[in-house]
Design a protein around this nucleic acid. Structure first.
Lengths: 316, 316
DNA sequence: AATGTAATATAGCTTCAAGTTATGAAACTC
DNA sequence: GAGTTTCATAACTTGAAGCTATATTACATT
């Protein structure tokens, strides 16, 4: 004996509103329509759902019980509609993001926290990877959105790249480092110090090599390598070691961690940090939501960094 | 954006079963049917519920979420079906019974307890009343079933009366009463004792008067009146007072309370205790269930009473 | 008791989702 | 790349759901 859920919902409304006429109005249907629906349901049930021969239609006990269930079904149905509405507007759903480790830890995680303050019902699954892996995952649907450094001209045809930050790298050290507050820094000044190195398979490692070559230091001593950002910063703060990091990462944690960038110009590849999304698949609406949030937040961050740099340049 | 609950249920089954074909089978529908239903739902939703271009059909996150709600709706729907089935078989629902106070308290309440051991989901609302009130309530639907003494020939045309017990009244006293275990009892033996009287508006009060007149005692002293059965029995057990009660009531509580019936024949009206139900309205199925339970239980009680009486008669 | 009013039921019709079978298309397997 | 499985589409029938118009019935009122 399968009952129609719609019928139970209609029954619930009628019982709640206390009559066919009012119930029909609340449902946005005509009175005869719901009358016949109830007659139909009553037929199927085989017993009266309303006391017979009563004009302000009063439910029987069975009618009441079924109406109670109908009301629950109704509320679940509404929950579904609401979920859908929120999902479509990007206010609900799961969002899978991925990016290069250092940048995710150093910059994006803060933005994620801000985003979730606005959108508590968007669940974010974060994962790490380098460009090729990220692209693969974007293509096979394992990822909705990636954040990575990429040279705009190298963007794959099936991807859309939105640059959000300059990709400038800097030499970072602790704020109390002897080289800080020196006017100009020469290669000889830097040579004595040891280096913290990112994992050897990471793009940042190549950046480090490139950077050091650009200031004429081919050989360098590494005293720590392979750690993620938290470890790198810990070692950086606890020693006079140097390392190469995106300026945005240094900028974000310079106050809280007590680190700074040396006023040395190093070379870096023509890459920009940005958001990568598949062109064909639109992904969940929350992806667009998050992307636009990131874009505007990172634009503000870029502005703050630009401002700081001007001030520093004037002072120095 | 109102979604069809049926669609959500179908979605839930498909997601659970892991495919259209299996889902359709589980639903007892053809595969094209559910396919089109899903297509329809997907249209309404406006976003994919399943990953496009995947053959063992895999739901998207939105599809999963909606399916979860659909599963809940489905289980509620099944709950409704089950409720209906149980209700129709008389295994669920509320049952409103009414009857004369002494008999309800003394006999029926025990039966109710037994009944509820078998049918825990039948909620019984008990109320008290005398014949006229009971009939009124049966007629206006405030009561599903009444239990009262009634002379079968006086049964109203719109009611069905099922006699279940002889209406014999007896003179009751405590088991330790001086008159118990005397061979024959005369009017003079009884005369000195005081009487416990039921409420003056009760039929049992008339029975008491009739009974005493029948043994030649016109004037009688009343030392307690108006109480319900529990009080009457308390006073009875705590004193040498006498009273008139249906034999069935005495029989039920003779062991536990320590009361007994005097071996005196008293007159009583030609009434039988029975179940009264309206002829037209069938009432809830649990009424029939309860009525048949009562009938058989009280038949057994009658047999036990008959047996006891034979034994007593042989002995006496 | 008659009558007026409000509420529900019925009639007759149209529309469209849901069901069917038959068949086409696509993705996975090996 | 051939075969198998799985899903989608086509073409059609059926019946529930919706509507308007109207009849019926219970309650209220005098």
């Amino acid at each position: 004996m399968k009952l129609d859920s719609d019928h139970l919902e209609i029954l619930a409304v009628i019982v709640e509103k206390g009559g066919l006429t009012e119930g029909a109005e609340a449902l946005g249907k005509s009175q005869p329509s719901v009358s016949r629906t109830i007659a139909f349901l009553q037929d199927r049930v085989g017993m009266p759902l309303f006391e017979p021969g009563r004009r302000p239609l009063r439910p029987t006990e069975l009618g009441q019980s079924l109406a109670r269930i109908g009301a629950q079904i109704r509320s679940l149905n509404q929950e579904a509609s609401q979920l859908l509405t929120r999902y479509r507007a990007g206010h609900a759903g799961r969002l899978r993001i991925g990016g290069t480790p250092i940048f995710m830890d150093g910059v994006i995680s803060t933005m994620v926290a801000d985003f979730q303050a606005h959108e508590p019902d968007v669940q974010i699954d974060q994962s790490y990877g380098y460009l090729d892996e990220l692209l693969t995952q974007l293509r096979n649907g394992a990822l909705d959105l990636a954040i990575a450094p990429l040279s705009p001209s190298m963007t794959p045809k099936d991807m859309e790249f939105t640059p959000v930050l300059a990709g400038r790298n800097v030499v970072a050290c602790r704020a109390s480092h002897p080289l800080i507050r020196r006017g100009a820094i020469t290669m000889d000044d830097i040579r004595p110090y040891q280096w913290i190195s990112p994992p050897e398979n990471s793009p940042l490692y190549l950046d480090l090599q490139l950077a050091l070559r650009s200031i004429g230091q081919e050989n360098f001593r590494v005293n720590f390598s392979g750690g993620s950002l938290a470890s790198i910063l810990s070692v950086l703060v606890g020693s006079d070691s140097l390392t190469v990091l995106p300026y945005s990462v240094v900028f974000m944690s310079r106050k809280t961690m007590g680190i700074d960038a040396l006023p040395v110009k190093i070379e870096h590849p023509a890459r920009r940090l940005g958001i990568i999304r598949p062109k064909d698949r639109s992904g969940p609406p929350s992806a667009a939501q998050f992307a636009s949030f990131l874009t505007s937040e990172l634009a503000r961050l870029q502005a703050r960094m630009d401002h700081e740099q001007q001030v520093t340049r004037r002072r120095g």
